[in-house]
Design a protein around this nucleic acid. Structure first.
Lengths: 184, 184
DNA sequence: TGAGGCATGTAAGAGGTTACATGATTTG
DNA sequence: CAAATCATGTAACCTCTTACATGCCTCA
């Protein structure tokens, strides 16, 4: 029970947010879940199948004009129950990110100082992009989805991303000048 | 070349820090690498074998008195070259942490507000523990390893952990009071 | 005498990515 | 005419975790 795969519940949860097809789910994930839970098509479609097998969702095949057929999924009462039960479960453990930059910095004694600085610059640029993206999404949610019941919670998760990204940005800048001083 | 597994290089890099056996490497990882690169025995031993096969390292089997036999590994010139080459390679991409708390908050509309607060409390407690651990390790490195050439870089990675953890702590506290206000 | 440290290793399986396959319609 | 969007899916592969197996020594 407590060791069940959260990705399954991510997909299940998305069925409550208006996503009905694997395709639209992927868009939602790339737009809003991406910063704390990436999911690929290779997981989405098999998982949707599994949810139906478990009785957590139902499918309906729909033919469309001018578009390919699609399968619309809907969460069942039983699925809703399972989702709520999972939401109550304590969080398994703190996430550990795999950070290639830190790994390289850890061994930076063997590295040209210039290279370390280049890595930091690249990283910083990406962090700034990420920060901008989060702000854009937050604005979009605040202005366009203000009547959506989910919106306040989505903004909370974005704030987490904004805060931790900003901290990483600050660290990047401080580390850059630290390395410069070190070289003298 | 650019898609090679960083874990392999983490192990290779550890050979330059005084770790010579799989066992001592695991201790080093749990103490100092853990916050940005977890590695289990199930990876360490097969990887060490691989490094020898590739000519990146050499092994020597040693019998010990009162202790089990051990295998001492040493990095080769060729391995050192490979490590440096990898250090030069640009970082593949920003890490994405899988965060179960954020996933649950994202769907919190379906949840008792009390449960969300409980999750935040648990999370906050663990973040504080983590922050303390990082500070302890940082102190240990600053005081006991001040003559070690690697030390300044290790401290840099710890600072990253301290900054981002502190940002998450702040977010936790702000989110908690936000949820309280919301309930009125 | 049992727990914990030292020390090495493997096999099964979970979880996930990537590349591929298919194919219609719309838009520049 | 090419590229993008809509739409579903699978197979191979990679990475990693977990549980297990072994065994000796030391210390409480």
């Amino acid at each position: 029970m407590s060791k069940e795969n959260p990705t399954q519940y991510a997909i299940l949860g998305l069925l409550t947010t208006g996503c009905t097809t694997g395709y639209s789910m992927k868009q939602m994930i790339d737009g809003s879940l991406n910063h704390f839970w990436k999911i690929s098509y290779g997981q989405i479609y098999p998982t949707l199948k599994l949810l139906v097998e478990k009785g957590f969702a139902t499918v309906e095949e729909l033919e469309q004009e001018g578009k390919p057929d699609k399968k619309e999924y809907q969460i069942t009462d039983f699925g809703m129950e399972a989702l709520k039960k999972w939401l109550e479960q304590p969080i398994a453990e703190l996430p550990v990110e795999k950070n290639e930059l830190l790994l390289k910095l850890f061994f930076s004694r063997h590295q040209n100082p210039e290279t370390a600085r280049r890595h930091l610059d690249d990283y910083l640029a990406r962090l700034l992009t990420r920060h901008n993206t989060y702000e854009a999404i937050k604005n979009m949610i605040s202005t366009q989805l203000f009547d959506e019941q989910d919106a306040p919670f989505w903004i909370i998760t974005l704030d987490y991303g904004l805060r931790t990204t900003q901290a990483a940005i600050d660290w990047c800048e401080d580390t850059k000048s630290l390395l410069l001083k070190k070289e003298g």
